[in-house]
């Protein structure tokens, strides 16, 4: 067992190191890099060079600086969505699983509705109306992410609540909060955590997809927006511009997603399934 754990930590270290390097790379770009992410600092569409590591876009704005700003905005959005999902999904799930009856039926219906709604079309519609407000985008994405978490949490809570020691605690007159805190939390929290972590990556993607369709805050320098603008630049197939203007945000997005995804996966295996 001990060996297995030690062996299992390897990927985690690797992933964390990867994320850390990404974060540092972009932190440098956001804090120490001389170019502005909003103001032109060179000629338009300069190829990567010493002055602009990743070149410039059509307005002459440094791409590395934009990417860096985008990283923190994307990460912030992802984490906020994750936290919100954990709060709503975890809370409602525990409530439903523990209380049962009418509460459970109501939560079931809500879960069912949100699972059945075709997500992307709804996001497209609502994104057009509310997309420019970042807080609303976070709310929207969270609204479409909490249902699976709530479903799993409810199931876990229900099974945990039926254990003898919980039943015993209840028969001794322990109040709900006490039982939730002391007996159920340990079983349920990992489910919520893993669910929320998976949402982080997904949220970043969904926001980028909305931005790609032009439905997100256009003043925020998000990666999806950069991809959108680059891929719509007329005649980009004929030029080399895509090599830095388009490839850079795509690579950044894919790397970030990859790391968060693998991290979530690792945690899922470790916390929920015991071992690989």
């Amino acid at each position: 067992m001990g060996k297995a754990i030690r062996k299992g930590w390897g990927p985690l270290l690797l992933l964390c190191a990867g994320l850390l390097i990404l974060t540092l790379f972009f932190a440098w770009g956001a804090l120490a890099w001389p170019c502005s992410p909003t103001q032109p600092s060179g000629d338009s569409l300069e190829a990567p060079g010493p002055a602009h590591w990743l070149g410039t876009d059509d307005l002459g704005i440094d791409i590395y600086a934009q990417l860096s700003r985008g990283f923190f905005s994307s990460m912030g959005l992802g984490l906020a969505c994750g936290a919100l999902t954990a709060l709503i999904g975890g809370g409602l799930g525990m409530l439903a699983g523990y209380k049962g009856g009418g509460v459970q039926a109501a939560v079931d219906l809500a879960v069912q509705v949100f699972l059945a709604v075709p997500q992307l079309p709804v996001l497209i519609v609502l994104g057009a109306f509310w997309g420019q407000d970042r807080r609303l985008v976070i709310g929207l994405i969270a609204a479409f992410s909490w249902a699976p978490v709530a479903k799993q949490t409810a199931a876990k809570t229900r099974s945990a609540a039926h254990r003898t020691y919980v039943q015993a605690a209840r028969s001794w007159g322990a109040n709900s909060w006490y039982i939730l805190k002391n007996h159920l939390a340990a079983d349920v929290l990992p489910v919520v955590l893993v669910g929320a972590l998976a949402v982080v990556g997904k949220a970043i993607l969904q926001e980028s997809a909305l931005a790609y369709l032009g439905l997100s805050d256009p003043t925020a320098k998000s990666w999806g927006l950069m991809i959108n603008r680059a891929s719509r630049f007329a005649g980009i197939y004929f030029t080399d511009y895509w090599k830095w203007w388009l490839a850079a945000p795509v690579a950044a997005l894919m790397l970030t997603i990859l790391f968060t995804r693998l991290l979530a996966r690792w945690l899922e295996q470790r916390l929920l399934e015991g071992s690989v």
Binding site: L45, F233, A234, G235, Y237, F238
Partner: peptide, 21 residues
């Protein structure tokens, strides 16, 4: 898909040109 590409390939006979090109 890309009007300029289509123009180059002779698929269409008139197209708009981006200022850069």
């Amino acid at each position: 898909s890309d009007a300029l590409l289509a123009f180059e390939n002779g698929e269409i006979d008139i197209t708009s040109v981006p200022a850069d090109l």
